[in-house]
Amino acid sequence: MAKTVLEVKDLKMYYFTSRGVVRAVDNVSFELKKGEVMGLAGESGCGKSSLGFTLMGMPTPPGKIVGGSVKIDGREIVGLPENVLRREIRWQKISMIFQGAMNALNPVYTIGYQMIEPLIYHKGMEKEEALDRAMRYLELVGLSPEIVYRYPHELSGGMKQRVIIATALILEPEVVIADEPTTALDVVVQAQIINLMKKLKKELGLSMIFITHDLSILAEISDRVAIMYAGKIIEIGDSQKIYYEPAHPYTQKLLAAIPRLHEDVDKLEFIPGQPPNLINPPSGCRFHPRCPYAMQVCKEQEPELKEIDKDHYAACWLL
C-alpha cells in the first residue's frame, strides 16, 4: 500500500478583511498517496487556489490558518514558525507551480541562475553541483540542458512552463501543487505539458495536486478528483467514479457544461446564478440556492461527506 504523503484534516483558512471574514477554506479533509495525482476542481472563487497556498504554509495575507492539520510525510506543518517553514518545508517537502508562473521568471537573470538559487541557499550546494543538477532536471522536462545559459525572453511559453516545472521538482519534494499550470498555454503545448506530467508521474512517482477549473484537463491526469464549492469539498473520489457516476448535483452540472468535441450536444447546460459570497455563505448546504433539487433540509443543515461507494464520497442530502 502506497504511503500517504499528504494528510489534510479539517483545515480552515480564513481571510480577515475589512469587509468581514472570508471563509475561503472551510473544513477541508483529504489524503494524497505517493505517486498519486489528485485533481482539485471548482469554479473561480471556490477556494482552490487559497487551499494550494495554505498547503504551502503561506496563506495570502490577510489570510490565516485558523484550524485543522496538514501533515506532509507525517510531519505537521500547521503552527510551525515561519523560519522552520522556510528552511525545511517549502520547496523541499512541498513545492508549487503557480498560476502564470512562467511570467514570473525574472527577466534579468539567466534560467540557470534562477533554478540554482534554492539549491545554493537551501541545500548549501556548490555552484557547479547545483548547475549540474539544474541541467539534469531540464533534460527531465524535455529541454536542452544548455537552456541554463538563456534568458526567459528567449524561450517560448511552453518552454518557460517546463522550466517552472523543473524548478518545482529540483529539491525533490514529496508533494507538488500545480495551480492552473496549463491555463495560459496553447492547446498543443498544453497537451505536451500534460504528457510530461504523466511521464514524471510514472518515472519519479510524482505526487501532485492539480488545481484547475477545467474538468477535461483534470480527467487527463488525475487518479482521484475532489470538487470544491464555496470553500468546501463537496465530492471526492476515484476519477472514473466522479466522471461517470457523479453524485452531487453540482458535479453533475459541471460535467454537463463541458462542450464535447466529438458529440453533438443540443444545448449545453449551465449552472444559473453565481458562486456565493464567502463572507456570508448560504445556510445549510452552500449550494442550495443554485440546486434544482434543493429540499427544506438543504437550507437548514450542512451535509457531511458520506461514503457512497468504494472510494467515492459526496456531501448531499439527496444521497
Binding site: 492547446v187 480527467a219 487527463e220 476519477s239 472514473q240
Partner: peptide, 9 residues
C-alpha cells in the same frame, strides 16, 4: 484537445 475520459490518464 483534452477530453474528460479518465481511463486514459
Amino acid at each position: 484537445v483534452p477530453e474528460p475520459i479518465p481511463e486514459r490518464r
